[in-house]
Computed example of a mutant assay.
Amino acid sequence: MVNTVEKRVIGYLAEETWTTFAELNEAIAERLVDANERIHRPDGTTRQQRFDAEEAPFLMPLPQLPFESVEWKELKLGRNYHVGSDYQYYSVPYQLAGRTLRVRLTSSTVTIFDGQQIVREHARKIGRKGQYSTVLEHVPKQHRNIDGLWSRPWFLDLARSFGPSTVQVITQVLDRYPIEAQGYLPCKNILTGLGKKNKARLEAASQQALNLGGHPTYGTLKRIMAAIASDAQAGGPPVPAASGQQREEHHP
């Protein structure tokens, strides 16, 4: 067939010129009809007749959906009942928290399995890191009484061991998200990441971040803590920034 194509298609059209691919494809299609249906083989049949009689009956229908490459992962469901993949997060019913789930990723979907059962399918998030796909039915109505899950009281109780400024920062982080659970991971990173080795420095950084206004984030606090550490190495202990509140003066 290669020899036939070279002679009947490429060779036949070699001296012609086209200005669009549509015109070229139309000319090629006409030459293929000639090669497959008009030229007879030594036994008197055409290539199209042989194909219809010997090969076509064994062909299976094309799948309804086009082929997509698939990636499989095993991911542990976090205490915020979201699985994370490629820095994007997808919710699962909170009752499954702590389990290792199978996750199938295509270019367009994220399908989460508990064993062989599909738990949830999400549209795959792309672009900016840290996006959430959260289904409201996956969110527990009461967090405090559910063991093994993160909650606002859990993070605020932990923040109190750092100081009032840290509590205020954590409160702002939790209030920033339309679904509170989406703020749990940033809170964890702040409290158990930045504050793991130096509670006093995180409290001082939190106060400085609040004085600056805006919305304190993990990145902001990390930069402030680095500056405080640099100042401490230059000499003198870290001193929290003033809270901005005026003291009441007492006169005798």
Results as ranks from 00 to 15, higher is better:
76 K>T: 13
77 L>C: 13
77 L>Q: 11
77 L>K: 03
78 G>V: 04
80 N>Q: 15
81 Y>R: 06
83 V>P: 01
83 V>D: 06
85 S>L: 12
85 S>C: 08
87 Y>Q: 14
87 Y>K: 13
88 Q>T: 09
89 Y>A: 13
90 Y>I: 10
91 S>M: 10
91 S>F: 05
92 V>D: 02
95 Q>I: 11
96 L>N: 08
96 L>H: 10
96 L>D: 09
99 R>G: 01
99 R>N: 14
100 T>W: 10
100 T>R: 12
101 L>G: 07
102 R>Y: 10
102 R>W: 09
103 V>S: 10
103 V>M: 13
104 R>S: 13
107 S>I: 07
107 S>P: 01
108 S>P: 00
108 S>L: 14
109 T>W: 06
110 V>S: 06
110 V>E: 07
112 I>P: 08
112 I>L: 07
113 F>Q: 05
113 F>G: 05
115 G>Y: 11
118 I>D: 01
118 I>M: 13
122 H>W: 02
122 H>K: 09
124 R>A: 07
125 K>Q: 15
125 K>V: 05
125 K>N: 15
127 G>Q: 09
129 K>S: 14
129 K>H: 14
129 K>Q: 15
130 G>K: 12
131 Q>S: 14
131 Q>P: 06
132 Y>P: 06
134 T>W: 07
134 T>G: 10
135 V>I: 10
137 E>I: 08
139 V>F: 11
140 P>R: 15
141 K>S: 07
141 K>G: 14
142 Q>M: 04
143 H>Q: 04
144 R>N: 13
145 N>M: 02
146 I>R: 12
146 I>H: 04
147 D>P: 03
148 G>L: 08
150 W>H: 14
151 S>D: 09
153 P>W: 05
155 F>S: 04
156 L>E: 11
158 L>D: 00
160 R>W: 06
161 S>A: 11
161 S>G: 02
162 F>G: 03
165 S>M: 05
165 S>C: 04
169 V>A: 07
170 I>T: 06
170 I>G: 01
170 I>W: 01
171 T>W: 02
171 T>G: 11
172 Q>I: 00
172 Q>N: 09
172 Q>E: 08
180 E>V: 15
181 A>W: 06
182 Q>I: 01
182 Q>A: 14
183 G>K: 07
184 Y>G: 09
184 Y>Q: 03
185 L>Q: 09
185 L>M: 14
185 L>A: 06
186 P>W: 02
192 T>E: 13
193 G>Q: 10
194 L>S: 08
195 G>A: 03
197 K>W: 15
197 K>H: 13
198 N>L: 05
200 A>F: 04
200 A>P: 00
202 L>D: 01
204 A>W: 06
205 A>M: 04
205 A>K: 03
207 Q>F: 04
208 Q>A: 08
209 A>I: 03
209 A>G: 09
210 L>M: 01
210 L>T: 03
212 L>P: 00
212 L>N: 05
212 L>F: 00
213 G>N: 05
213 G>M: 10
213 G>C: 05
214 G>K: 02
215 H>E: 09
215 H>T: 05
216 P>H: 07
216 P>L: 02
217 T>L: 08
217 T>E: 08
219 G>A: 14
222 K>A: 12
